[in-house]
Amino acid sequence: MTSQITLIMRATTLVVCLLLQTAHVFAAPAAYYIWKSKTSDAQLCAQTSPGEFWDKATGPYKDPHCEKPALVNEPAPPVIILVPVPIIKVH
Score class of each variant (00 low, 15 high):
Gly51Arg: 14
Tyr61Asn: 06
Lys38Trp: 08
Lys36Pro: 04
Pro50Cys: 11
Lys56Pro: 01
Gly51Lys: 10
Cys45Asp: 01
Asp41Leu: 13
Ala46Leu: 03
Phe53Asn: 15
Asp63Arg: 10
Ser40Gln: 12
Cys45Thr: 05
Pro50Met: 09
Gln43Arg: 15
Leu44Thr: 01
Asp41Ala: 15
Tyr33Pro: 01
Ala46Pro: 03
Ala57His: 08
Pro50Asn: 09
Asp55Gly: 03
Ile34Gly: 07
Gln43Trp: 08
Thr48Pro: 07
Ala30Trp: 05
Ala31Leu: 01
Ser37Trp: 12
Asp63Val: 07
Gly51Leu: 15
Lys62Asn: 15
Gln43Val: 15
Ser40Glu: 13
Glu52Asn: 15
His65Tyr: 14
Ala46Gly: 04
Ser40Pro: 10
Cys45Glu: 03
Pro50Trp: 04
Gln47Thr: 01
Ala57Asp: 11
Leu44Ala: 09
Tyr32Glu: 03
Ala57Gln: 08
Asp55Cys: 00
Tyr33Leu: 02
Lys56Asn: 04
Lys38Phe: 08
Trp54Ser: 06
Ser49Trp: 10
Asp41Ser: 15
Ile34Ser: 08
Gly59Ser: 02
Gln43His: 11
Trp35Ala: 01
Lys62Glu: 15
Thr58Gln: 08
Pro60Leu: 03
Pro29Ile: 00
Lys62Ala: 10
Thr39Asn: 12
Trp54Lys: 05
Tyr33Asn: 00
Glu52Thr: 14
Tyr33Glu: 00
Trp35Phe: 10
Asp41Tyr: 11
Tyr61Leu: 02
Ser49Lys: 09
Asp55His: 02
His65Cys: 00
Gln47Gly: 05
His65Asp: 13
Leu44Ser: 03
Gly51Pro: 10
Ile34Glu: 13
Ala57Pro: 04
Pro60Met: 05
Gln47Pro: 00
Ala42Val: 14
Tyr61Cys: 04
His65Ala: 06
Ala30Pro: 02
Gln43Asn: 10
Gln43Met: 13
Lys36Ile: 08
Lys36Asp: 00
Lys38Asn: 13
Pro64Ala: 13
Phe53Leu: 15
